[in-house]
Write a protein that binds this DNA or RNA. Structure first.
Length: 883
RNA sequence: GGGUCGUUAACUCAGAGGUAGAGUGCUUCCUUGACGCGGAAGAAGCCACAAGUUCGAAUCUUGUACGACCCACCA
């Protein structure tokens, strides 16, 4: 293949789409179906159907894709199931917005037409996010793509609902729930976000019936007093003991309500007397149950006041508050107003302040479900990575409350319950009923509500595999291997999948949960629409390519921790991709007469053995890091290996052997090593940067159909020759020292220098003699001499001191005495500090007694070496100073 | 009120019981036959503070301070 058509700047656009299409068309994303191999399966956290890919998805799916690609190369029978979520409230809200633009509301259309409209919307935008996932390079099995409202998933939802209902784990009733006045629906506890805000504490006097006395209550929400049906005090509170059992007359309303005692009341807070509004406060609701209080609901679903609010009916809740306060003040009931900070609940979706209200809703009884879900995790059947998330999960599960699952929406899974209009029978069944089983009436009306979106998400790991049918996929891929997701949905999703999986299938849905952090903006803030600080991953892909986006998001990232998105880092990664590209170009350009050969070890040079050793160390390290989900560290090591070791050292050392080979054979050897190392490196890098690695792979001689299905590089311990690696490192140190001298004395690289290496150890001298060419080539040395010791230290020379050798560079006429003296003095200072440290240790008896032998030996060696260097330095200094 | 995470070079972050690393930025040099989206050399850190464990702590323990986030029904 000719190299002229490879541009010197890597262009991801010309590469990525091409290979993705190729992979997909060849069905490489599908499982191998080789059941003799262990399976490795992941279900993708389903993004919202009508949503757009954001950086959070990009990170999440990159992590999954890395794991799947890596396991696939390892030979596992891998399955990654993609899909989308119907996202009840979110999707419905968007369609309502679009209707609003036409001046319509969903009520204008009616339920059926509206739902049809949402389906249309889904058909229109449903592909967008999956296309975007493809652009990222996600190797998920599109032939198994699912949607939470498709037939199969809906079937699973129905089955689970009926199961739970039949077991008595789903019930319907009037309870206090969180109501969003804007979304017009109940929401669950975790969909409420609490935010501190500055408010007031109004102290209101409630006149005691048939008395001149008042009870003063304090409230943050005075408008709710219209629904008060009692006043609570602490049973042991002497201030109020005489009033227990009496009544107060509710101001503005005139209702006679009881004063009662309840341990819930905190004597220290406020006045020690609490107005009780069972219909609009969760604690009051509980007290209402304990004391059999009347419930008076005073608000409508839009949070305006209803007819129970008397003259305030029709007012918005906050207008009503102002009015009530004004009236209380006017009538002398308002005692005082305090500044007060408290937490207000907001709707996660629309940020509206949530109103606690009593309402008829469906609930899942959580305690029985939570218990085994806690057990399985404690028993280690499910492992959280990082481990610290285990406790977060357990704590939440232990304190879980019943889950309100009904939503007053139209878009979602409709609750499979019918009410007989004639006899009132409630029918919950797997099949749509045609007649009432009790009275045979056909007058059946289905429940109007739909289920919380998370109800169907909770079934995702098995509903996508065909459950409740006993499908082949269920048999082969369930339980799944790992769930990868953001730490923000541990409660919403992870926890619910765990208890649902255990309850419905009898098995945990996955064995490991890999939790990652959030993507923040460059200032460390959450990305949000309102801040306008979001970065569109598609922009990044368009400008820099998917490989760059993937790699830049994960490098140097600690598991579970948040990541800041920075364009600097993206550019750096782009440069890295370019570096890889050009390294590959270099290799390919020099492979025109390549032929694969078997190379006996003795034909490998020191550099060859070094790079093979380093490569194999990387294979072991990276495999191990991936095993532990430390993908960021794995990526970092790839980067260092490729850039520093392969490019800056190995390729540089290979050049002379390619351009001016001593013999044809050595040229063939270096060609083989270059190809081989590049090939293996591309395989190691492939899970991280799938596109560029496939592109390069396809140019490399001896490539197969696709890098995707190549075997993951095997660690060969015999390739790691530590003594060779150390030798190479000594030579590298010598080269660096010589380059340093060059730089310090401004010797242009055009001028060749002479170097003398003095080493008392014969082996070291031999090493430098044998590999003198490395030094000559990389440090531009024309003449290299090795001596046992300098009879006389040359005066017209600068020196560099290595561990086992001294290097002299004669620089007659060029030498700057002052500069050399200050160089030497700086070195001396460092060495003295070094000696002080090592001596302190070696003079410490407990160190000698307790430290491991190898550490002591290392310390001794260091001390000895430092002393030798110090002597040499002093000698040199002497010479210069005496001149 | 509980809990988690963070505090390391100017910036953004890795790392880790045995003398501190990267990228960017900065300084100097280099159009050397892969790459200037490049190469070479360099400056730059008491690893937040305090006590403890240890032969040895930036790393482990416990506190403190500051920051971020999560959970929580004090009206």
């Amino acid at each position: 293949m000719s190299m002229e058509n490879l541009a010197s700047i890597y262009d991801p656009e010309r590469v990525e789409g091409k290979w993705y299409d190729y992979w997909k068309q060849k069905n490489y994303f599908e499982p191998s179906g080789d059941y003799s191999q262990p399976h490795y399966s992941i279900v993708m956290p389903p993004p919202n159907v009508t949503g757009q890919l954001h950086l959070g998805h990009a990170l999440d799916n990159t992590l999954q894709d890395i794991l799947i690609r890596w396991r696939r190369m390892q030979g596992y029978n891998t399955l990654w199931v993609p899909g989308t979520d119907h996202a009840g409230i979110a999707t419905q809200a968007r369609v309502e917005e679009s209707l609003a633009a036409e001046g319509l509301s969903r009520y204008d259309l009616g339920r059926e037409k509206f739902v049809e409209r949402v389906w249309e919307w889904k058909r229109l935008y449903g592909d967008r996010i999956t296309t975007q996932l493809s652009l990222l390079g996600s190797s998920c099995d599109w032939s198994r793509e699912r949607f939470t409202m498709d037939e199969g998933c809906s079937h699973a939802v129905r089955e689970v609902f009926v199961n739970l209902y039949e077991k008595g784990l789903i019930y319907r009733g009037d309870y206090i729930i969180n109501w969003c006045p804007k979304c017009h629906t109940a929401i669950s506890d975790i969909e409420v976000e609490h935010a501190d805000s500055d408010g007031h504490l109004w102290h209101i006097r409630y006149p005691v019936e048939n008395s001149d006395e008042f009870v003063v209550v304090a409230t943050t929400r005075p408008e709710t007093m219209l629904g008060d049906t009692g006043v609570a005090v602490h049973p042991d509170d002497e201030r109020y003991a005489h009033l227990i059992g009496r009544n107060v007359v509710l101001p503005l309303v005139g209702r006679i309500i009881p004063i009662f005692a309840d341990h819930y009341v905190d004597r220290e807070f406020g006045t020690g007397a609490v107005k009780v509004t069972p219909s609009h406060d969760p604690n009051d609701f509980e007290m209402g149950l304990r004391h059999d209080l009347e419930r008076v609901t005073v608000m409508k679903p839009d949070a305006s006041m209803n007819e129970n609010a008397g003259v305030y009916a029709g007012l918005d809740r906050y207008e009503c508050r102002r009015q009530v306060v004004r009236d209380l003040e006017k009538d002398g009931y308002l005692l005082r107003i305090e500044e007060h900070q408290h937490a207000l609940g907001h709707c996660q979706r629309c940020d509206t302040i949530v109103e606690p209200m009593v309402s008829l809703q469906w609930f899942v009884k959580m305690k029985p479900l939570a218990e085994p879900a806690i057990q399985k995790v404690l028993e280690g059947e499910i492992r959280f990575v990082p481990e610290r998330f285990t406790r977060i999960y357990i704590n939440w599960m232990e304190n879980i409350r019943d889950w309100c699952i009904s939503r007053q929406l139209w878009w979602g899974h409709r609750i499979p319950v019918w009410y007989c209009q004639d006899c009132g029978e409630i029918i919950c069944s797997r099949e749509d009923p045609v007649a009432c089983p009790s009275c045979s009436s056909s007058q059946l009306k289905q429940d109007e509500d739909v289920l919380d979106t998370w109800f169907s998400s909770a079934l995702w790991p098995f509903s996508t595999l065909g459950w409740p049918n006993d499908t082949a996929d269920m048999q082969h891929y369930y339980p799944t291997s790992v769930l990868v997701t953001g730490r923000d949905i541990i409660f919403f999703w992870v926890a619910r999948m765990i208890f649902s999986g255990i309850e419905q299938t009898g098995k945990v849905p996955f064995h490991e949960v890999n939790i990652h952090g959030l993507i923040l903006d460059a200032q460390g803030r959450k990305m949000s629409k309102s801040l306008g600080n979001g970065v569109d991953p598609l922009d990044v892909i368009e400008k820099y390519g998917a490989d760059t986006l993937r790699f830049s998001m994960i490098t140097g990232v600690t598991p579970g921790n948040d990541v800041r998105f920075q364009w600097d880092k993206v550019e750096n990664t782009r440069n890295f991709a370019n570096k890889i590209w050009n390294a590959a170009r270099f290799v390919l350009m020099n492979l025109e007469d390549y032929s694969p050969i078997e190379i006996p070890d003795n034909e490998l040079t020191l550099a060859d053995r070094w790079i093979y050793g380093r490569l194999n160390q990387k294979i072991a390290e990276i495999t191990n890091l991936l095993d532990n989900y430390e993908l960021g560290e794995a990526a970092r090591r790839m980067y260092d290996f490729i850039w520093d070791e392969f490019c800056d050292w190995y390729i540089e050392l290979a050049k002379p052997r390619l351009f001016h080979p001593d013999n044809r054979r050595d040229r063939a050897v270096v060609q083989n090593v270059l190809r081989d190392v590049l090939m293996q490196t591309m395989k190691l890098l492939h899970p991280f940067m799938p596109f560029i690695t496939e592109e390069i792979y396809q140019y490399l001689p001896g490539h197969g159909e696709t890098i995707m299905l190549e075997a993951w590089p095997r660690y060969e311990p015999n390739r790691v020759e530590t003594d060779r690696i150390e030798q190479m490192q000594l030579i590298m140190a010598a080269i660096r020292s010589l380059r340093n001298i060059r730089a310090e004395f401004n010797i242009s690289h055009g001028i060749a220098i002479k170097a003398i290496i003095s080493a008392p150890d014969f082996k070291i001298r031999e090493l430098f003699r044998q590999y003198g060419s490395y030094i000559k080539d990389l440090a531009r040395v024309s003449e290299l001499e090795t001596v046992e010791g300098m009879e006389e230290t040359p005066q017209q020379a600068v020196s560099a001191l290595l561990a086992f050798a001294e290097i002299y560079v004669p620089l007659e006429g060029i030498i700057d005495v002052d500069k050399e003296v200050s160089r030497l003095e700086k070195d001396l200072k460092n060495i003295d500090a070094d000696i002080a440290k090592t001596d302190a240790k070696l003079n410490n008896d407990s160190f000698l007694a307790k430290a491991p032998a190898d550490v002591i030996a290392k310390e001794r060696g260091r001390a000895e070496e430092a002393r030798l260097r110090r002597e040499g330095l002093l000698q040199r200094l002497q010479i210069f100073k005496s001149r």
